[in-house]
């Protein structure tokens, strides 16, 4: 648990203190579908559910495991 807490603290501290390194005018590509973190959110919802009930792991992109008797 200590490992997780240290990782989270360092990540949050790093990002919040980060300077603005990409200006608005430079973000043209970020708006395209190929640059989205999840380009197909509706399709991903079902795939993530399958992962959560066919695998011991959950969290992150996968569903957290509630909502159906699948697992």
């Amino acid at each position: 648990m200590r490992f997780f807490k240290v990782c989270i603290f360092l990540l949050i501290a790093y990002f919040i203190s980060g300077c603005a390194n990409v200006k608005q005018i430079e973000r043209g590509r970020m708006a395209t579908k190929i640059m989205q973190l999840e380009p197909q959110p509706e399709e991903a919802k079902f795939l993530n559910s399958v992962n959560s009930y066919r695998e011991g792991a959950a969290g992150g992109s996968s569903a957290v495991g509630g909502g159906c008797g699948c697992n």
């Binding site: 990540l11 990002f15 970020m30 973190l37 959950a58 969290g59 992150g60 957290v64």
Partner: peptide, 27 residues
Amino acid sequence: RTIWSLDLTGTQLLSPTDLIQFGYTHI
């Protein structure tokens, strides 16, 4: 059966061509 979760996620633009995301989920 009670399930609760908390996800903390940060997303950072690294450059005009790079985007990264880090997060932690507790369930």
